[in-house]
Design a protein around this nucleic acid. Structure first.
Length: 790
DNA sequence: CTGGAGGATCTTTTT
DNA sequence: GATCCTCCAG
């Protein structure tokens, strides 16, 4: 994330007149002179734009909705609009809020504005993703929502572990109510802007026999104790901050003279509310989006937000960008024809001045393997014809489809790259390393502590961890504080105790190094001294070398940051490591990660009922799900500049068993005029014509209870039967020891300890007791581990 | 407390 | 087919 240019922002944030040039450093004045020099003339950056684009750019004041179809120059409009606001001096960089969804988009905008205005525009402090901007605002006012400004941002793995603990503590059977499901619910609530107290009663019953809402509340409470926020909180807590603190809100309302929202069709309710609050004052909000490309409904995105824009912002100007600069007429025709099957859309008609080009091809194949082979051959042919591999992409519905292509390409020696695959920061070893860094930076980060306490093995297993947890909970302190207490006592057996002590001291030592040592050197020291690197060096498994490489890469990536805190903030918000991979490789990715990209040739394999549209989408969201799948297909086709090649297979291996499949209904919805059916040389399936698939379509509609669906039902049934008695053990433990009033013991008092038996208190040092046990001799223990015994 | 064996479950998409 | 989890034997 960009480093804020405080030097030049501060004056703007203060009460001084933002247009007072006296506050702006020289270079800035020099730059804005070029804008002034344009005078009344049409600024040069507007010249090569079409009418609609210019309209979208020049309508700076008042609410504007820009409906930007695929390939209509959306990003250009966005950035030019920004540049326009700046160069006409309607606003200074610090007064423009520009939000995107992905870090990639934010970076691209940053970059393009830079080249438009010329020079440094890291000065756009409020250009970023919803999440990064939310985090930035929250850090400034953390104490108002019960956090400290150095709060940790949890990733999904952390979130998952935490929820698991809570579910266990509630005595709920985790088999039946998996943590990931609860996480999905909580995410859903947060996306809809619901705090625990606002979760509708009916909703909460979906989880753990109606315990959903209370678990959510418990989770939020726990987050506050951990001084942590999850992804959803970055928005929801920010929203709460605004709602509960009008003066804070009004401050931001004043500040953001102009607001710009990219991919508006992907906003969820929380984001929508957030935007609305902020736009209340100046009302200069410009939302850019395409309802036909809304593909994140499952993540809480509300297509409604864009469909409702004109009601939400009365007097809104709506600009349609319909001239497409990317694709040939056939490709556009195929995509447009397909998307007309959707009912809920605002409707646009894309057109182009390009030459006809080739039709979209459609190919039926025997199985997934053949599909991979044929596409591989196609790509090799393209290569021979002088096409670049990097201008070729294979877009799949689900990531498991990638495997067959990878296998095939490795076989062929065809270079490929998986875009948006397993993320760097999600790898286990990288997370472990980050946990070390987090623990050093933030001593009370329990999740980090827990993660690495016994990695590498230090003889601190479950037992030690449980003892620690118990103590931490009773004392209301963090694990590392609890550890400090524990090593003073004899609660843990000798090896564990010594190991824990060593561990604590090691972390303390690193922390002490922090002020003097650069963060990179520090990271190296930590990885080295902790034995973590060594652990992988001694590991004989096949993936160990790769993991070591990743650790090196991690340390290298830290160079981009000024300090440890900056690095940690970055990785929690940006899951991807930036790498300039410009090599000529075929691109392999999911349809979702293809949004916003374009390629000469696009392969769209796997157009089969159940896979695409995905069965689960249909089961869970019905018609809305189907329409979203169709939009996904639309996104896929419109990625192609020159050639789109759709295929489907009659047989596919799923979970290691073969399933026969029918061509996707989307195949039938493609307008014939724009499609060529290609006969494969091994056309076992006999899908030579549309009539066959139309017939299959009829069949498939009555085939709703397909194998997958039946299996799902069977699972649900057996799950229901598996209900077990609630786990009482956890409760018993709580009841036995959680008695805060009992912490004051007297010397000579008789006490009972679970492990050491009966004894008399000999000395008292705070909450540490020295007890003479009748059978175990003199021991130091923490008072919460003993019971008073009359 | 560790490590290995065997079992269950998984695969839709992601900031 | 992989990964994660649980259980059991040292």
């Amino acid at each position: 994330m960009p480093v804020p240019l405080n030097a030049y922002l501060e004056p703007i944030m203060s009460d001084s007149d933002p247009f007072d040039l006296g506050d702006i450093p020289e270079e800035e004045t020099a730059r804005s002179l070029s804008a002034q020099a344009m005078g009344g003339m049409r600024p040069p950056y507007l010249r090569s734009l079409n009418e609609a684009q210019q309209e979208a750019i020049e309508a700076l004041d008042g609410p504007v909705l820009v409906l930007a179809g695929a390939g209509t120059g959306k990003t250009r409009v966005l950035t030019t609009r920004l540049a326009h606001a700046l160069s006409t001096k309607k606003a200074w960089p610090g007064q423009i809020l520009a939000v995107t969804f992905t870090n990639k988009a934010a970076k691209e905008m940053q970059h393009r504005i830079g080249s438009l205005i010329g020079g440094v525009v890291e000065g756009m402090p409020w250009l970023g993703t919803f999440h990064s901007i939310g985090a930035k605002i929250l850090r400034r006012h953390a104490e108002l929502v019960g956090l400290r400004s150095d709060f940790t941002i949890l990733d999904m793995d952390d979130q998952h572990r935490l929820l698991k603990q809570l579910i266990k503590a509630e005595g709920i059977d985790e088999k039946r109510w998996p943590a990931r499901q609860l996480a999905a619910h909580i995410d859903g609530w947060k996306n809809r802007g619901l705090t625990p107290d606002k979760v509708p009663a009916g909703d909460a019953e979906h989880f753990g026999n109606g315990k959903g809402a209370s678990l959510y509340a418990a989770y939020q409470e726990r987050l506050k104790i951990l001084n942590a926020a999850d992804f959803g909180d970055l928005l929801l807590e920010c929203l709460r901050l605004f709602q509960e603190n009008p003066e804070v809100l009004s401050d931001y309302q004043d500040r953001f003279k102009y607001m710009l929202v990219d991919e508006y069709q992907d906003t969820n309710v929380a984001q929508y509310l957030w935007l609305r609050l902020l736009a209340q004052k100046h009302k200069n909000i410009c939302c850019v989006g395409d309802d036909d490309q809304s593909i994140y409904g499952w993540r809480g995105a509300e297509v409604d937000n864009i469909l409702r824009f004109e009601q939400d912002f009365p007097g809104a100007k709506v600009v349609r960008l319909e001239q497409n600069y990317r694709s040939t007429p056939h490709i556009l025709g195929a995509a447009s024809g397909l998307i007309t099957a959707n009912e809920s859309r605002l409707g646009k008609t894309l057109w182009t001045e390009m030459n006809e080009g080739e039709k979209v091809t459609l190919r039926g194949l025997w199985d997934g393997e053949e599909e991979a082979r044929v596409i591989g051959e196609d790509i090799e042919q393209l290569q021979r014809d002088g096409h670049l591999l990097r201008e070729t992409a294979i877009l799949v519905r689900a990531s498991f489809q990638m495997r067959e292509f990878e296998d095939r390409f490795i076989n062929l020696g065809l270079p490929y790259r998986v875009v948006g695959g397993p993320r760097f920061y999600e790898r286990m070893e990288v997370r472990d390393a980050n946990a070390y860094l987090r623990l050093v930076a933030q001593p009370d980060d329990d999740l980090a502590f827990e993660r690495i306490m016994n990695k590498p093995k230090r003889g601190l297993g479950d037992k030690a961890l449980q003892t620690l947890h118990q103590l931490a909970r009773q004392q209301g302190i963090s694990l590392s504080r609890a550890a400090r207490l524990l090593i003073e006592t004899e609660e843990l057996r000798q090896p564990a105790r010594r190991n824990l002590k060593d561990f604590i001291e090691m972390v303390d030592r690193w922390r002490a190094l922090m002020p003097g040592m650069g963060h990179i050197e520090l990271a190296e020291t930590i990885l080295d001294e902790s034995g973590y690197t060594e652990m992988w060096q001694n590991d004989r498994s096949a993936d160990a070398p790769g993991r070591l490489d990743n650790l090196k890469e991690l340390v290298r990536s830290m160079e981009h940051f000024e300090n440890l805190a900056g690095y940690l903030e970055h990785i929690s918000l940006v899951m991807e490591i930036e790498q300039a991979d410009t090599a000529d490789k075929v691109n392999l990715m999911t349809l979702h990660s293809a949004k916003g990209l374009e390629f000469d040739t696009v392969f769209l394999p796997g157009w089969e009922e159940g896979l695409f549209p995905h069965q689960r989408s249909l089961d869970e969201s019905g018609l809305a799900g189907l329409e979203e799948e169709r939009r996904l297909a639309y996104v896929g086709i419109t990625r192609a500049k020159k050639s789109a090649r759709i295929s489907f297979a009659s047989n596919r291996r799923v979970h290691n068993l073969w399933q026969s499949s029918l061509p996707s209904r989307f195949v039938d919805e493609l307008p014939k005029d724009h499609v060529d059916v290609v006969e494969g040389d091994t056309n076992f399936g006999g899908y030579g014509s549309f009539s066959q698939s139309r017939f299959d379509h009829e069949f498939s509609q009555s085939n709703y209870g397909g194998p997958g669906w039946q299996r799902a039902q069977a699972n649900a049934r057996s799950g229901a039967m598996k209900t077990r008695a609630p786990d009482l053990e956890g409760h018993a433990e709580l009841v036995a020891t959680s008695d805060p009033a009992a912490s004051s013991y007297n010397v000579g008092e008789r006490v009972f300890h679970q492990k050491f038996g009966y004894g008399h208190v000999a000395e008292i040092d705070g909450n540490k007791l020295t007890v003479d046990f009748e059978h175990s001799g003199r021991k130091k223990v923490i008072d919460t581990f003993v019971e008073r015994h009359a």
